[in-house]
Design a protein around this nucleic acid. Sequence first.
DNA 1: AGTTAAACCTGGTTGC
DNA 2: TGCAACCAGGTTTAAC
Length: 281
Amino acid sequence: MPELPEVEVTRRSLTEQMVDAVVHEARLGKSLRWPLGCTEASLAGRVVGALQRRGKYLWMPLSARPMAAATEDAGGLLLHLGMSGSLAFGRDLVPAGAHDHFELTTSRGTLRLTDPRRFGAVIWSSGPGDARAAKLLSALGYEPFDPSFDGPQFHRLLKVRRAPIKAVLLAGQVIVGVGNIYASEVLFRAGIDPRLRSNRISQARAHRLLAAIRQTLERAIALGGSTLRDFRDAYGSAGAFQAEALVYGRAGLPCPNCGAPIRRLEQGQRATYFCARCQRR
DNA sequence: AGTTAAACCTGGTTGC
DNA sequence: TGCAACCAGGTTTAAC
């Protein structure tokens, strides 16, 4: 489910409800991708800080006591929603089901991670120097909305890769947050063939692609993300961007721009949707 | 080092 | 209806 817009929508809805909450109890059910890395009891009494996002990861600061200086205790939880994860928060959640794998009971309500496929993760990190967290975050590319990231820099990074542009976007080593839905969508909006090799992209088209990424992700965030099957924000609301998808999941349907049938192909074991007439090599 | 395939899981949909 | 095959929003790991 979750690409950058869904994770960002989750971050915002969670932060509104959870900042300053005091943790009462943590409960881990079926194992997720990795072990938690601390005892559940060691989270009790900690105070939730403002959530941050890096790529598709969420960072929840958990201070050992109220008003602790950041330098004094920079610990917290690193969360990833994987393919099918979502987070819910509230005082009266429905009883936990078979796919609810992590719960954090707090003074303001209960945070619950639901993830049928269990590709998601919750790991304790003691701070920036934490090796496990650093390993996950260190190879990540630029944030799409980082103001210091611009078209020329994007172009330079694309020039040194030979994989198809779709694969380069998905890999997240150049720019983070673009998953399988939005990769097809941004390439359509930029008029670029997903099979085009990254190093063959001109500077002008790189600029156009970056602009399309920013506009598309921004619009998706504004619409609460995409809900294909089960994504919900922390209030339980579904997203609406899927209704504005121009090519994703629309094989055989007419291109909204030229009417030619949208094509589906496979790249790196993932489906890609595009219009062979509007998107050029 | 870069690129590609396999692996991790479960559930819903499609087709015979 | 039953059941196999295929599909799904991600990322790590191993292998060319």
